[in-house]
Amino acid sequence: MTSRRPVFTADPRELAGRRALVTSGSRGIGAAVAARLRRAGARVLAVARSRPAELDDGEPFVAADLATAEGCAAVADAVRGDLGGADIIVHVLGGSKAPSGGFAVLDDREWQRAFDLNLLPAVRLDRALLPEMLDRGSGVIVHVGSIQSRLPLPEATTAYAAAKAALSTYSKALSKEVGPRGVRVVRVSPGWVQTDGATGLIAELAAKLGTDTEGARQALMASLGGIPIGRPAWPEEVAELVTFLASDRAASIHGSEHVIDGGTVPVA
């Protein structure tokens, strides 16, 4: 068992000439996906609220708030203007800042915020960019969800989990509609991923519980019902799965969900 950050090699020709949009592309899973697609030869337009300092000046980027219709429209315009369209769309954006306390603390504003962040950006961007894919008869859309859609934590993630479940249902419906016209749609559902945000959460949990970082890690894994491999995934591992699904190696994979959670969700 190891917790070392993995290193993957890439065929630089695999996605050569492909144009990719990656939302939430400045950190965590999104940054790892954008970097991995670039290594595979794709031209990537990343989206986030602000441009990451480490991104090369020559790499296309758009700063936008995708929780708004205006932000999604600006990104769609940037895809058309900077890339001339998209061959690959990876919807990574998501998250929750809802307070703990279960259903009673989730007012209409919290519910709307969950759907504005976790469902509607994908709906809006797909609606704007899919027609060109369908006209061309090719393309891949990857919706990044969460195992929370199957394994919600009622203390704090009810609205987030419901929004991700809605994303999963939307994605499945979309796959049935556009698959016969040459566009593949797949879902990737990570469990706990070792991002900078997760590291911060561990620090907060350690302070709250009066324990050290390892104790907080174990407590968080226990709250999920355990992670059989004994650790969270790395963003690079999720990016590797996304890149495979976006490639021609996965040409017959469509309409399916791919869970990457170290065995957290028990399945029959």
Results as ranks from 00 to 15, higher is better:
M1F: 13
R4F: 12
R5Q: 13
P6F: 01
P6W: 06
F8A: 06
L15F: 08
L21Q: 01
G25L: 12
S26K: 12
R27S: 15
G28L: 06
L37Q: 01
A40P: 01
G41S: 14
E54M: 00
D56M: 06
E59Q: 11
A64N: 05
A64Y: 03
A64L: 03
T68R: 03
A73H: 11
A74T: 07
A78I: 06
A78N: 10
G84H: 00
I89H: 02
L93P: 00
G94E: 08
G94Y: 11
G95R: 04
S96F: 05
P99E: 12
A104I: 07
L106N: 07
D107T: 12
R109F: 07
W111Q: 05
R124G: 08
D126G: 10
L129I: 06
E132A: 15
G137F: 15
I141K: 06
G145N: 11
S146M: 08
I147M: 07
A156E: 14
T158D: 02
A162P: 04
A162T: 07
A163P: 06
A163W: 02
A166S: 12
Y170H: 07
S171H: 02
S171L: 01
K176A: 15
E177N: 08
E177L: 13
P180F: 05
G182A: 12
V183F: 15
V186W: 10
S189N: 11
W192F: 05
G197T: 08
Q218Y: 09
Q218N: 14
L224N: 04
L224G: 09
A233I: 03
W234E: 05
E236N: 09
T243C: 04
V259P: 00
